[in-house]
Computed example of a mutant assay.
Amino acid sequence: MTMRLPRVVTGWLALLSGVLAAAGLVVIVVYCFATDGPHARYLAVALTTGMASFLVGCLAGFLFGIPRVVSTGALRLTQDGKVSDDPKPDAVTGQFTPSTNLSEISDWLTKLLLGAGLVQLGSLARLAGVLVHAIAQGISTTTTGTAPVSAGATAMAGAILVTYVVLGFLDGYVVTTLWYGRRLSEMQV
């Protein structure tokens, strides 16, 4: 029963993510064709923004979800009987210890991104506002930047960014944690 729970959770989260992504796609298409102007351009900007946001979220979810190898701290005996704490392949049993390079890089990048993000929180909010405004210009009739962008276009741009970043993060995190973690544990057995 405990081995089945992650598959059920993964299945339901994948279904929920797919349904939300499809619903978001329907909302984007309805918005793009309900707005006056070049519908194909609106759709292209909105879909490209959604896909890019989803991929950024997936990358962040991957970085946060990489399983860590838990070290027991036990010292290993080498073939000559000497004590070594070097995680090299164990010559006695023929088993290999998993490489922790990817998890160390992930841990380092996570700390770096969180640290830089917290220090630059004020400027990140300003940059997010500029990004939302630029996307809103791409999905509205103002292309010169002199006319004010409608509140609906700004709200839609913000919703596209937030929705697809969150969905991508959840997908990346769940897949990395459950599926990739399960594959790593199967390789160690």
Rank of each mutant, 00 (worst) to 15 (best):
M1H: 14
M1G: 14
R4T: 10
R4H: 08
R7W: 15
G11S: 07
G11C: 02
G11D: 08
W12F: 15
W12N: 09
W12M: 15
L13T: 14
L15H: 00
V19L: 05
A21S: 08
A23E: 00
A23H: 01
G24W: 02
G24C: 00
L25T: 06
V26H: 10
Y31A: 03
D36C: 03
G37L: 04
R41Y: 10
L47Q: 00
T49D: 04
G50K: 02
M51V: 15
S53N: 11
F54I: 00
G61Y: 01
F64K: 08
G65M: 00
P67W: 10
R68T: 03
R68P: 00
T72Y: 07
G73S: 02
L77A: 05
V83K: 06
K88D: 05
T93S: 15
Q95M: 12
Q95F: 13
F96E: 12
T97N: 09
T97M: 09
P98I: 01
S99Q: 08
L102R: 11
I105G: 04
D107N: 13
K111Q: 08
G117S: 05
G122H: 09
G122F: 14
G122S: 12
S123Y: 09
G129T: 04
V130I: 12
L131T: 13
V132L: 12
I135F: 14
Q137E: 05
Q137P: 00
G138D: 07
I139T: 08
T141Y: 14
T142L: 00
G145Q: 02
A147M: 06
A147Q: 13
P148I: 02
P148H: 02
P148V: 02
V149G: 04
A151D: 13
M156D: 01
M156W: 01
G158V: 06
I160H: 09
T163W: 03
Y164N: 15
L167Q: 01
F169P: 02
D171E: 02
G172Y: 03
G172F: 03
V174G: 01
T177Q: 05
L178T: 11
Y180V: 11
R182Q: 07
R183I: 12
